[in-house]
Amino acid sequence: MYRRLINTDVMRAADAAASLRSYSGPSSIANLPLVSAFLACAVAQFLKPFTTWLKDNKWDSRRMLSSGGMPSSHSATVTALATAIGLQEGAGGPAFAIAVVLACVVMYDATGIRLHAGRQAELLNQIVCELPPEHPVANVRPLRDSLGHTPLQVASGALLGCLVALLMGSSI
């Protein structure tokens, strides 16, 4: 009896290893969702100085490393992740469900809480600038006010993320 259990377990392990070796997935990228997410984030961050230049006629390369602005790199990242998981594992699995919920939370946060926190920081900076120089708070370093995103910035980031994941999934 004991020998039969061992043989059965060995057979199951061998079958599992063989199926893992034969599965190549929809692409040859080791982790399509992870690569897609990071690439979408990098592309979104790379585009920010260009969109700032188009909007304000001002080149600011520091926008590549900052939050806020067009397109939303947070939205691009989480939608690329969700799209790539959907492509790789199908839309019916639990990983896709988790990724979609994560994407919704991140995008809601970007347009809600972070956008309003940025607007409050902008108002506080304006109040501090109007204080007399002898006031104890007058010399405080300004708060970062580019924190959140408008709905258009979030939607463009989401579209970018989907495109990156679709291109990554179809090109490999």
Rank of each mutant, 00 (worst) to 15 (best):
G86D: 03
G86C: 11
G86K: 09
G86F: 08
L87Q: 12
L87R: 15
L87P: 07
L87M: 13
L87Y: 10
Q88D: 13
Q88G: 11
Q88P: 03
Q88M: 11
E89F: 14
E89D: 15
G90M: 08
G90P: 08
G92Q: 07
G92S: 09
G92L: 09
G92H: 13
G93A: 10
G93P: 03
P94Y: 14
P94K: 10
P94W: 13
A95L: 11
A95N: 11
A95Q: 14
A95E: 09
A95W: 10
A97I: 05
A97W: 07
A97S: 11
A97K: 14
A97F: 09
I98M: 15
I98F: 15
I98P: 05
I98R: 10
I98V: 15
I98Q: 13
I98K: 13
I98G: 12
A99P: 05
A99W: 01
A99H: 03
V100P: 00
V100H: 04
V101N: 07
V101F: 15
L102P: 04
L102F: 15
A103K: 01
A103P: 03
A103H: 05
A103T: 01
A103E: 04
V105D: 04
V105W: 06
V105T: 09
V106H: 00
V106W: 02
V106M: 00
V106A: 00
V106S: 00
M107D: 00
M107H: 01
Y108K: 01
Y108M: 12
Y108F: 15
D109Q: 01
D109C: 03
D109Y: 06
D109T: 04
D109H: 04
D109A: 06
A110R: 03
A110F: 00
A110N: 06
A110T: 03
A110C: 10
A110E: 00
T111R: 09
T111D: 11
T111I: 14
G112Q: 02
G112K: 02
I113G: 06
I113C: 08
R114I: 06
R114W: 03
R114V: 02
H116M: 10
H116W: 15
H116D: 10
A117S: 10
A117V: 12
A117T: 06
A117R: 04
G118E: 02
G118S: 05
G118M: 07
G118Y: 06
G118P: 08
G118K: 02
R119D: 08
R119P: 05
R119I: 11
R119E: 12
R119G: 08
Q120W: 07
Q120M: 09
Q120Y: 09
Q120L: 10
A121K: 02
A121R: 02
A121W: 05
A121E: 00
A121H: 01
E122R: 14
E122L: 09
E122F: 08
E122M: 10
L123S: 11
L123G: 09
L123K: 14
L123Y: 10
L124S: 04
L124I: 11
L124P: 01
L124E: 03
N125W: 02
N125M: 03
N125A: 04
N125C: 00
Q126G: 12
Q126R: 13
Q126Y: 07
Q126N: 14
Q126D: 12
I127A: 11
V128G: 02
V128N: 05
V128P: 02
C129P: 00
C129N: 12
C129D: 13
C129M: 08
C129G: 09
E130R: 11
E130F: 07
L131F: 04
L131C: 06
L131N: 05
